[in-house]
Write a protein that binds this DNA or RNA. Structure first.
Length: 405
DNA sequence: TTTCCACAGGAATAAAGGGCGA
DNA sequence: TCGCCCTTTATTCCTGTGGAAA
């Protein structure tokens, strides 16, 4: 048998899927208060009445989406049992971030594949009309969940959906909106008319503490792993790392999964704390790499310009100097040189991805206000992830010692 | 207290690309 | 085919910012 043939591996997992993002367990651990409040808010649906619009908020990985999937699944099943027609739809606004796109996505998600419409080309008013018709054809209680609602660039769709009955757009369907956000200040950014509609009920999901994270991990461990394959300190260690990441259960579960994967690749009988530590480093590196590979070429050149300063210990560097280096690199590579305005916007994006740190300084009348930028990830990791870009635009002398062998 | 500096960043606009329907 | 209506991305213009210096 060749080493490249595939055969099922029976260690250490029982059901690896139980640690993946889209898995919904039979019980949600450590979220009793939130579930109780959320359940009460959705209850009117089963009584054939429209639930209030709900706004869920809390940090990443605290169970907002999991709780939503968990309760909507039960609500739909209860609807089937009691003969109540309830439709639900979850849309992630990361990627579907305009009112227009959300409307198109809603239309297409409730239509047969042959009746779907294209993503561009229609007047907005026509898209809304199609959406109301689609909802009225369903003629029931429709619960629409907009996950990562803070990614929406405009709130037109929120206003339209929350006021659809009042504005006589809908005859038979009744819509409840559930907005989910990690951004605690998002509500304040909404226009007052939208805020009052969409935040009829707000539910705060608090961060998991280390004890709650242990319970979550224990529950998934019993499904995902075979008996007695985890060393005693694996779960506490994953929970401690998850608690450090502001109580993020997703991170803790990813770490447990990674530790299991490493043990499997190493053909070890037991998953150990060492596997967890190695997994953590790998996950961090993968996250940096994913972030960088998701950038376009211009952003990668900008980031590369910053690494050339980092390589000579010249950071934090003023944005003006960074722009000059970017200009030089892009020009040498025969690429279009974009403006400083573009750079400012995209530096913010790099900061959001955790790749750079930006500080604002002010030297008053002798120097004015300006930004300084520094790399916030290990230089070698960033250079390694930028390898293709570096190859295509040429190596700057300052980073040569940091190129991977 | 006022002025000054050097951007930072919001708003409006342009350009390019793509689908629809007459 | 062409005009319309969207999208995304970048540019231009211009006001705002806030600490140091006068």
């Amino acid at each position: 048998m060749s080493k490249f043939d595939f055969s099922p591996r029976d260690f250490p997992f029982n059901n690896r899927n139980a640690l993946l993002d889209d898995y919904t367990p039979d019980e949600l651990v450590g979220r009793d208060d939130e579930l109780e409040e959320y359940h009460a808010a959705l209850q009117p649906a089963i009584d054939q009445s429209k639930p209030d619009n709900i706004f869920l908020y809390g940090k990443t990985g605290v169970g907002k989406t999991a709780a939503t999937r968990f309760l909507l699944d039960r609500l739909e099943r209860a609807g089937d049992e009691h003969g109540v027609n309830i439709h639900t739809k979850i849309i992630n606004c990361d990627g579907i971030d305009t009112s227009y796109r959300v409307a198109v996505e809603l239309i297409n998600s409730f239509r047969e594949s042959t009746e779907r419409i294209s993503e561009t080309g229609h007047p907005r008013s026509k898209v809304y009309d199609m959406m109301w018709n689609t909802f009225d054809e369903l003629g029931s209680i429709i619960i629409l969940v907009l996950d990562e609602i803070d990614h929406l660039q405009d709130d037109s769709i929120l206003y339209q959906l929350s006021r659809a009955r009042e504005n006589r757009q809908l005859q038979s369907a009744r819509i409840s909106l559930v907005g989910i956000s990690n951004d605690l200040s998002y509500r304040e950014q909404l226009s007052p008319k939208v805020r009052s509609s969409i935040c009829e009920r707000s539910i705060n999901f608090k961060a998991y503490d280390a004890i709650e994270l242990r319970e979550v991990l224990q529950q998934r461990k019993s499904i995902a792993f075979q008996d007695d394959v985890l060393e005693d300190d694996v779960i506490p260690l994953c929970a401690a790392f998850g608690a450090q990441e502001s109580g993020d259960a997703r991170k803790a579960l990813d770490l447990l999964l990674k530790a299991g994967d490493i043990a499997q690749e190493d053909n070890n009988d037991i998953v150990t704390a060492e596997h967890v530590r190695r997994g953590r480093k790998l996950l961090e590196r993968e996250e940096v790499k994913r972030g960088i590979l998701g950038l376009n070429e211009q952003e990668q050149i900008l980031l590369y310009a910053l690494t050339t300063f980092e390589a000579t210990d010249s950071t934090p560097i003023r944005s003006r100097s960074l722009y000059h280096r970017y200009e030089q690199l892009a020009d040498n590579a025969g690429r279009e040189v974009l403006t400083t305005r573009w750079m400012h916007d995209h530096l913010d994006e790099l900061e959001m991805l955790g790749l750079v740190t930006i500080d604002k300084l002010n030297e008053g009348s002798s120097g004015g206000q300006y930004k300084t930028v520094a790399l916030s990830q290990a230089l070698e990791s960033v250079v390694s992830a930028l390898a293709t870009t570096i190859q295509s635009i040429g190596i700057h002398p300052s980073i040569e010692p940091f190129l991977p062998e």
